[in-house]
Amino acid sequence: MATVKFKYKGEEKEVDISKIKKVWRVGKMISFTWDEGGGKTGRGAVSEKDAPKELLQMLEKQ
């Protein structure tokens, strides 16, 4: 499965696309949330040019 790689608060992170729940556009950035388990929700953002095609497809479906 595809993953999204991004930096959050200076830390490199990687999230499996299948865990992503919500995707939206903020200017030229793609923001998203995912389920971290245990009732926690993670947040992240990646530039439109660095976003994997699967993430962009999720954005178009909404």
Rank of each mutant, 00 (worst) to 15 (best):
M1N: 14
M1G: 09
M1E: 15
A2P: 14
A2I: 12
A2W: 02
A2Q: 14
A2R: 06
A2N: 10
T3N: 05
T3E: 02
T3K: 08
T3H: 08
T3P: 02
T3M: 09
V4N: 00
V4L: 04
V4K: 00
V4S: 00
K5R: 07
K5V: 06
K5H: 04
K5P: 01
K5D: 01
F6Y: 13
F6P: 00
F6G: 01
F6C: 04
F6I: 04
F6W: 04
K7T: 08
K7H: 15
Y8D: 13
Y8L: 04
Y8T: 05
K9A: 12
K9V: 02
K9E: 13
K9F: 13
G10L: 03
G10I: 01
G10F: 02
G10E: 08
G10V: 01
E11K: 10
E11S: 05
E11I: 08
E11D: 03
E11G: 09
E12Y: 07
E12D: 10
E12R: 04
K13H: 13
K13N: 03
E14F: 03
E14P: 00
E14L: 05
E14G: 02
E14Q: 04
E14M: 05
E14S: 05
V15L: 03
V15N: 00
V15F: 01
V15C: 06
V15A: 04
D16N: 12
D16V: 09
D16T: 09
D16R: 06
I17S: 03
I17Q: 04
I17K: 02
I17E: 03
I17C: 11
S18A: 13
S18D: 13
S18L: 09
S18H: 13
K19D: 14
K19T: 06
K19L: 07
I20S: 00
I20H: 00
I20T: 02
I20A: 01
I20D: 00
K21N: 15
K21C: 12
K21F: 14
K21V: 14
K21L: 09
K21A: 15
K21P: 04
K21Y: 08
K22M: 09
K22A: 13
K22E: 07
K22N: 14
V23P: 03
V23W: 02
V23I: 04
V23R: 01
V23T: 05
W24E: 06
W24H: 08
W24L: 04
W24G: 11
R25W: 05
R25M: 14
R25Q: 12
R25E: 06
R25G: 13
R25K: 10
R25T: 15
R25Y: 08
R25N: 07
V26H: 12
V26N: 13
V26P: 09
V26A: 11
V26Q: 12
V26C: 15
G27A: 13
G27T: 11
G27D: 15
G27F: 01
G27E: 14
G27Y: 10
K28Y: 09
K28S: 06
K28C: 15
K28T: 11
K28N: 11
K28W: 03
K28G: 15
M29H: 06
M29G: 13
M29C: 14
M29P: 03
M29F: 10
M29Y: 05
M29V: 13
I30S: 00
I30T: 02
I30C: 07
I30P: 00
I30G: 00
S31E: 11
S31K: 15
F32H: 00
T33D: 14
T33P: 00
T33R: 14
T33G: 06
T33F: 05
W34N: 01
W34P: 00
W34T: 01
W34L: 02
W34I: 02
D35E: 15
D35F: 04
E36Q: 02
E36T: 11
E36H: 05
E36F: 07
E36N: 05
E36P: 13
G37Q: 12
G37E: 12
G37H: 10
G37F: 15
G38V: 10
G38I: 10
G38K: 08
G38R: 09
G38N: 06
G39D: 14
G39A: 04
G39P: 10
K40Y: 15
K40F: 14
K40R: 05
T41K: 11
T41C: 15
T41Y: 09
T41R: 08
G42C: 14
G42L: 09
G42T: 12
R43I: 05
R43K: 10
R43H: 08
R43M: 03
R43N: 15
G44H: 10
G44Y: 08
G44P: 00
G44K: 03
G44F: 14
G44R: 01
A45G: 11
A45I: 11
A45H: 12
A45R: 10
V46D: 00
V46H: 02
V46Q: 02
V46C: 05
V46Y: 01
S47E: 14
S47Y: 08
S47M: 13
S47P: 10
S47V: 07
S47K: 13
E48M: 07
E48N: 08
E48Y: 08
K49Y: 13
K49A: 06
K49N: 11
K49R: 08
K49M: 09
K49D: 11
D50W: 15
D50Y: 07
D50L: 08
D50P: 02
D50G: 04
D50V: 06
A51I: 09
A51R: 01
A51S: 05
A51D: 02
P52Q: 04
P52V: 09
P52G: 10
P52R: 02
P52H: 06
P52D: 04
K53T: 07
K53E: 11
K53F: 14
K53Q: 10
K53V: 12
K53C: 14
E54Q: 05
E54I: 10
E54Y: 06
E54F: 11
E54V: 13
L55Q: 01
L55A: 01
L55T: 01
L56D: 04
L56Y: 06
L56P: 01
L56E: 14
Q57V: 06
Q57A: 05
Q57T: 11
Q57S: 12
Q57D: 08
M58P: 01
M58F: 05
M58N: 03
M58I: 07
L59G: 02
L59H: 03
L59S: 05
L59A: 13
L59E: 07
E60V: 08
E60R: 02
E60N: 08
E60P: 07
E60W: 02
K61R: 03
K61A: 05
K61Y: 11
K61F: 12
K61T: 12
K61L: 13
K61G: 14
K61P: 15
K61H: 13
Q62V: 05
Q62A: 04
Q62H: 09
Q62S: 06
Q62K: 01
Q62G: 09
Q62D: 15
